Each structure stands twice: as C-alpha cells, then as structure tokens.
Simulated assay, not measured.
Amino acid sequence: MFRYIIKRLVYAVILLLAVITLNFLLIHISPGDPVETIAGSMGGMTEELRAQLRTEFGLDKPFLVQLGIYLGNVVQGDLGQSYFFNAPVTSLILERLPATLLLVIVSVLLAFLVGTFMGSLAARRPNGLLSQLVTILSIVGYSAPVFWTGIVLIILFASVFPIFPVSDMRTAGMDDGGWAGILDVAEHLVLPAFTLAFVYIAQYSRLARASMMEALSADYIRTARAKGLSETIVLYKHALRNAVLPVITMLGMQFGNVLAGAILVETVFNWPGLGRLAFDSVLRRDYPTMLGILFFASMLVIIMNQLTDLAYRIIDPRIKA
C-alpha cells in the first residue's frame, strides 16, 4: 500500500505540473489584456504607464520565459501578486477557500448520501412508485442548469416563502463565534448546497438504483438469503457494498464538475468563495489570481481522485491484489 501511495503521488505531481502549464497557455492566448483592463477602469492611461505596468507584471517577456518564471515560483509556493486586488494570490485564495470547501463538501455528501439511499430503496421495487419518482428526478436533474435552479429557489424562498436567506454566507452584524454563528452559516448554506447537490442527487440515485438491481440479482445475494440472513443485512451489508462502487467512481470523476458548478452557485447566491473570486478575476483579466484558483482547483480534483482510488481499495478487498 505504501509503494502504491508513493507511486500515485508521483503521478499526481507530474499531472499537476502539466495542468499548470496548460492553464498558463490557455489564459495567455485568450482575448483580453490586464493592462488595458486596468486602464479602462481608471478612465485612461499614458503609454509610459502602460509600459511600466507590463514590465512590472512581466508581460513584456517572451511567453516561454514567463512560463519558466511562473513554474519556478509555483514550485517555491509563490503564486504571484494579484493585478487587481494588489495582494498575494495565496492569501486571497486561503481567505476564500474555507467557504468553497464548506459548500462543495456539504453538497457532495448530500448528493452521495441522499442519491445512494433513494437509489437503494428504488431498487427493491423496480416498478414501484419510488422507482418511477427516481426516474423523473433524474430527468429533471439532468435538464435543469445549476444557475436556473438557484434563481428558482431565490424567487421561491425570497418572495413566496421567505424562509431561508438567499445571499451571502452570514447575516450582517452577526457574531462569527458560538452556536448562533454556526446556525447562521448553516441557514445561509441550505439553498446554495441544495442547488449544487440537486443535479448530482438525480444522477447518483439513478446510478445507485441500476447498480443495486444488478447486485441483487447476483449469486452471492441468493446464497445470503438462502442462509436465512435478514433482508436488511442482505441489502445494506452485502449488496450495497458492491453497488456503491460505481457511485464512488462517479463522485470522484465529477468532483471537478462540482467545483465548476460552485462558481455559478456562488455567483447566484453571492457566496464569498473561490467561485466568486474566479468570476471577478475573469472580468478583470487578473491572470495571477485566475491561475492560482485553477491551480488549487486542479490540486483538489487530483486529491479527490487519489482518495477515490484509496476508497476503492478499502471497500473492495479484491482490488488490493
């Protein structure tokens, strides 16, 4: 297991460097100029000041030189200085990262637990009412864009049923500490987390239903029932342990999609996370901040993929061989 982990870590580092290089290339060949964006926000700028800014930002150097300098800085843990916020990119990301991780982790857990539970129940009676509801939910979940779901929830819970807050992470003036602060954050988290989780609840429930039905038709399930084991043990100890593997695979593969969806959700609900920071950075052509966010997002996706592989080896002993 130790050799396996070391091998996966080496692959992860190589992949991360490749992703950083590709991100750097795509951002620098995309339309837009950070200096011109700054000039526009200031209402104009002299050519001398433009040249000074390009030199200060390193934009006057050849592309390969810029890439080499950036990779060297990243290896040393330096993600650069934000053009717009005039602050270290690392500090900006670390300031916003907890809010994004809270939103993403709660959404992923909600989608995984609810989707797997619904799919498992639906598999017991494939032609029952719950199974039909899971099918309808999956169709609606695939069809509804994340931002549309968020807007509908805002209209519903801001105008029709004003139950949950629809903006920000905390109530203005609320103390961050204590149970009151925790409950306030949880109340603000309900709508963004459900919006982000809704589409994945639909996917996981459908996948869990199909996988559970396949597991229930296997020979070892008939053997377990023949031994006189209770239906609960047969379903949740024997069948579910194998049926949940495709769901875990899907969860690991879609973690990047969840992060991408978080950008839209954070923008709709004004959630102060990396998604909102990424949106502002794209509008302002803030290259270092954009690259820093992509770096952290890529690292989170790679870590999630490694954890998915490890979870496979823990859940299914056959994979250890």
Rank of each mutant, 00 (worst) to 15 (best):
I69M: 08
L59C: 02
G115C: 09
L71I: 15
T116K: 05
T149W: 01
F164N: 01
G128N: 11
L156Y: 09
F84Y: 14
E95T: 14
P31G: 03
F147Y: 13
R125T: 12
L67G: 09
A87R: 13
D60T: 08
R125I: 07
S107D: 00
E56Q: 14
A144G: 01
V89K: 01
F157Y: 05
A51F: 08
N86H: 11
M45R: 06
L71K: 01
G119N: 09
I38V: 15
G58F: 13
H28E: 11
R170Q: 13
L102E: 04
L92V: 03
L94F: 15
E47W: 07
T149D: 03
K61G: 05
I151C: 05
L97A: 01
G58L: 11
F117N: 09
T116I: 11
L94N: 15
L79V: 00
L113C: 10
L102D: 04
D78Q: 11
T135E: 11
V146L: 00
S159V: 13
E48W: 02
I151S: 04
P31N: 09
V166M: 04
V35M: 09
P165M: 10
T55S: 15
S107C: 06
V114M: 12
D33N: 12
L92T: 02
G77L: 02
V106G: 00
L97Q: 00
L102C: 03
D78H: 12
K61C: 07
V152M: 15
Q76A: 10
V75C: 03
G119V: 03
L71H: 01
A39N: 01
F85G: 00
I151Q: 11
Y142I: 06
L129P: 03
G119M: 05
L113V: 14
P165Y: 02
M45E: 11
G141Q: 01
G119T: 04
E36Q: 14
P34N: 04
S159T: 12
G44P: 11
G68T: 06
S138N: 14
L92A: 02
V166W: 04
G128E: 06
R50L: 01
I29A: 10
V160W: 15
D168Q: 14
Q66S: 10
L130Q: 10
R50G: 03
